[in-house]
Design a protein around this nucleic acid. Structure first.
Lengths: 228, 228
DNA sequence: TGAATAAAGTCAAACGATTGATTAAACCGA
DNA sequence: TCGGTTTAATCAATCGTTTGACTTTATTCA
């Protein structure tokens, strides 16, 4: 039926009324989907929380699945933009400069992902989307993860001397990201183990500091390996 | 209604017929829940795949939620047993012995989690259970994660000289586990980025090797920090 | 300018399908 | 035959979606 994008093509003037309910539905859906999962969230629940009518979901997004796609698109593009801002493309860096860029990028990603309330929702949403292997996974990979990951690998390469697109390097960068991600996924367990109430700003700061120290240690060790 | 355990209390003789369908339901449910999520899996789907009647779920587990609990219990106890086998309690270790035990434990956990088909299902199930913050999360924490994590922290402490129950140490051990876990959660992304078809035995071996190298590097760096 | 027309958005009600759960009858080895 | 087990039928509830009437906003033309 519907070709690609949203249902109604009227996007010339960006009026207010429609954008309000459309956006309310989108934000509410992101929040509820990431909190309770896609299947466990009913369209009525979304509409009620967004103070909109059920029919509006069909009207704006075609279907519940269309709403899911819209959520994924919205999040992916926003995260990609944030990541791009934290990672200005620059060439001809010294190893130490690359190390610092790597640290900065990772640090801001961690703090964003762990403490900012909206980001937490979005991270949870993306994780579920990946684990469910939905149809938007493709988009998440090609537009979000791959460019970001390749850039990080290049930085790692400059910082350590490892070849940039070697499988060892790729895996290594994944493992660094994984350290950060776990504190998001396993938050209920982490919080309890550490006697925290939640992962707020100061806790995110602590985590970030530790992960960055790990990164430093790993880079130094890699440099030593490449010296010989 | 139902007090605690399974619905029918007849567990004296351990007959065969019931254990067959009961177990089939349990295993099928674990597989389907972890593949598609709890909410997205219908009781009819489970019964059909397990070659059982829908009523059998109520009969043996009281409800769909009861089946979920049974799945969680089954997995948690099995993983705990496996972990206990990989981590024999032993005191008075030298730092190097502790390092080796840590490496061995982590390595076996990684390989189990990434390559063994049943373990993959179970890992996915536990992850969903944690992120949904279900009622079994408590059990997962107290009976599975906490004892395991405390033991790992003690090993880390002996290996590096860090205090065992310090928040820094606890976070550090989480970050090591996180490295491994990410390859399980982000498998679809990892596989694609690396041009693999799947994470099988040889791939799990590669990942394990790299994570263990990271562990070594981190331990060495921590030792250096404690020297001064 | 101002009434007429069209379009965009909202809304309550209802659709068929599917959900988890329950029931009573049938089954069957001891 | 008896009690544990399996089965098909059925329950009310909820699911995602559709409908058509309604209000609001925008556009057109005399």
């Amino acid at each position: 039926m519907w070709e690609e994008e949203g249902t109604h093509t009227r996007s010339d003037k960006g009026s207010n009324a429609d954008d309000n309910t459309k956006n309310a539905l989108l934000q509410t859906a992101i929040s509820l989907f990431s909190k309770n999962g896609f299947a466990a969230t009913s369209t009525r629940e979304i509409a009620k929380a967004a103070k909109a009518n059920i029919g509006s979901i069909s009207y704006y997004f075609g279907s519940k699945e269309g709403l899911r796609r819209a959520c994924a698109r919205s999040i992916a593009s926003l995260v990609a933009a944030t990541a791009a801002r934290a990672l200005p493309d620059s060439d001809a860096l010294s190893p130490d400069e690359a190390t610092e860029q790597l640290s900065n990028a990772l640090g801001s990603v961690i703090k964003l992902m762990l403490s900012h309330p909206n980001s937490r929702n979005m991270a949870a949403f993306l994780l579920q989307e990946v684990s469910e292997q939905g149809e938007v996974l493709d988009e998440i990979y090609t537009h979000l993860l791959e460019p970001l990951h390749k850039k990080l690998c290049r930085l790692w390469s400059v910082a350590t001397g490892d070849p940039a697109e070697d499988s060892q390097t790729i895996m290594r960068v994944f493992s660094v990201l994984g350290q950060a991600l776990y504190f998001r996924i396993g938050e209920p367990l982490v919080v309890r183990r550490l006697g925290w109430e939640r992962i707020g700003k100061p806790e995110a700061e602590q985590i970030s500091e530790m992960v960055l120290q790990n990164l430093q240690d790993m880079i130094i060790a890699a440099r030593v390996r490449n010296k010989t």
